[in-house]
Nucleic acid binder design. Structure first.
Lengths: 101, 101
DNA sequence: AAAGTACTTGACAACTTGGAAAGTACTTTC
DNA sequence: GAAAGTACTTTCCAAGTTGTCAAGTACTTT
């Protein structure tokens, strides 16, 4: 009795799969950490969208947000957590598994 | 004055990006054509979902549906169109561009 | 004091998804 | 030949997702 293998699609992480969040994860995977504005400009989204999507990623514990000051002005920067890096790597692998190449 | 390059995320094809349709495209990219039931079993979705998603892909002209008979029973099979293959390849490339690998 | 910076939140409208169920058009079985 | 099954397709619906726009917060700068 062989249990049919689950299609790899089921391994896709929904939080990571949305284009904007996928782009955020990608950008953060390539840098130690990025400032809000740099991230916003890099992936080209509105402040509002970035703020919301970052919150979703933070709640999922894939990203950590650090608030500090640049002189007297507030500065928000984001980076991947360990979990975030693992999930990102697994997501990419799943994509490859589905694409089959 | 350099126009800032558009983030590759904008090149993602929404029709292809949804997990189920991504899986359909992937499966079809690996075969000449697949029968409805084989596709349904391969990607593990309900008849209803497969039928709907296939219609969306057909309307976008990424997939062509061929209806024939296996003996006296109807048989539906799907395959990628030329456009479908191009879009699929471009989508995968965009994913790679974003993932940066 | 007015305007700006750096975000965050809330109200919305527009879509997208999937499941359940019914429908279509036959074919097969009892 | 009536009931059941096959192979999908469609409709109805409830739920969740996205983005935009406007407003809010808490200061800083002019």
């Amino acid at each position: 009795m062989t249990t049919p293998a689950e299609h790899p699609r089921h391994q896709l992480n929904e939080v990571v799969h949305s284009p904007v969040r996928f782009s955020i994860m990608a950008a953060l995977s390539k840098a130690e950490s990025l400032d809000f504005k740099d991230l916003r400009d890099a992936i080209q989204v509105s402040d509002s969208v970035l703020s919301k999507q970052l919150s979703i990623l933070e709640k999922a514990e894939f990203v950590k947000i650090k608030k500090s000051f640049a002189g007297k002005m507030p500065r928000t920067s984001a980076s991947l957590t360990g979990t975030g890096r693992d999930v990102w790597a697994a997501h990419l692998q799943t994509l490859r598994d589905i694409a089959g190449g």
